Computed example of a mutant assay.
Amino acid sequence: MGSWVSDARKRIYRNLKYRIIRPDPPAAPFRFNSPVVVVGSAPVSHKPAGLDGSFRIITVNGSQSVIAKWGVDAPDITMMMFNQVEGTTPNAVEVRRVLTRQRTGTLYVFLWRKDDRARLEEGLRAFDYQYDRLEIVDRYERMALLDRVANLRSLEMDADSKCSNGMNAVLFALYNGAPAVIITGINPNSTGHVYNSAGLTRLHVHMDKVLVSKLVSEGRPVFTADPSVSEELGIPLWTATSR
């Protein structure tokens, strides 16, 4: 009974707050006018056909380790969950390991307290992760991405009702004008991460599949560089002639 009441109160609170504050989704540091590559951390990924310096690259958590193999020194944007900065889970520890002494353009940290920026900066210094610009994205700004871009509402009550950070990066790119979004290393059907061997089960599978299906059915400019993902999920495969 107590849990049901608590959940009901949380739903009411989040719904009212979202409606009252009417948040804008997070803005990119610049308008995207060329293809955007969103790199996830699934074990299998591919360098998109025709990738050159005009493409913008967004990495998620520890997926920056993938682009090093492509000869890319640093992504334009990195999206990171708050718990990767100080967390003690095997995944958080591995994320910090692969990001140690690396850098990015703009770093977006999700769900960190906006009134505790100094602690965030200190946590990032602890593993020497550098950035040109640091932004904190709260829950309601993240909810606004799903709402504004896909016309889907989520109060983020559990893992099944949330998108993965990879799909949030796709929404972010679309919201900020990307003429094409190419995903790689993002597969709701996969397990594990490219930067560790723990074989952890992937969260947010349900909402990611719902979102992919909606974006594809609406003809949004979303592609994948991964042939198996194209076949499994029906996402158009990016080729050298797609641009």
Rank of each mutant, 00 (worst) to 15 (best):
M1A: 14
F110A: 13
K114H: 13
K47Y: 12
P188W: 07
K214M: 13
S6F: 14
R101M: 10
R117E: 15
T239M: 05
N189P: 00
S161D: 14
R125A: 15
I235C: 00
R9F: 12
L16N: 11
R19D: 14
D52S: 14
F55G: 00
R119W: 08
P23E: 12
R22I: 09
E94T: 03
R243W: 15
Y175D: 15
G234S: 09
M79H: 08
L134E: 09
L174I: 04
P75N: 04
T201S: 14
L233C: 01
S242M: 10
V39C: 07
P43F: 04
R113V: 01
W4G: 00
V181R: 01
P35S: 06
R101F: 13
F127A: 04
M167A: 02
S230I: 04
A92W: 07
G50V: 01
H204W: 04
L152P: 04
Y175R: 02
A178E: 02
V109H: 02
P25H: 06
K214G: 06
I67M: 05
R142N: 12
N189Q: 08
A27F: 13
D115E: 15
M81W: 09
P29K: 09
P48E: 03
L99Q: 12
C163W: 10
M81E: 14
F223I: 02
P29N: 07
R202K: 15
P221S: 03
L146A: 09
P90C: 06
F127G: 04
Y13D: 05
F223C: 06
R113N: 12
I67Q: 05
V38H: 00
Q84I: 07
P179V: 01
R11E: 06
V109M: 04
H46K: 10
L16V: 14
N187T: 05
A144C: 12
W238N: 05
A92Y: 03
N151A: 12
V222D: 08
A150M: 12
V210G: 01
P26G: 11
E86F: 12
E135D: 10
K209W: 06
V170M: 02
E122V: 08
S3Q: 15
L120T: 03
E156G: 02
E135N: 07
A92Q: 02
T201M: 13
T239G: 11
N61E: 11
K10G: 05
K114D: 13
A180P: 00
M1T: 10
S63A: 10
R22W: 13
K47S: 06
V98D: 08
Q130M: 03
E218C: 01
P48V: 07
S65C: 15
P236C: 11
N176W: 01
S213L: 06
E121Q: 12
R153N: 11
P227T: 08
R125Q: 15
R101H: 14
D160Y: 10
Y13N: 03
G166L: 11
G40N: 06
N91A: 08
S197I: 05
G2M: 15
N187Q: 08
I58P: 00
A173C: 09
S45I: 01
A74D: 06
L107N: 02
M143K: 05
G219R: 03
S63E: 04
L152M: 15
S242D: 06
R14L: 10
W4S: 00
V72K: 00
N196G: 05
N61M: 07
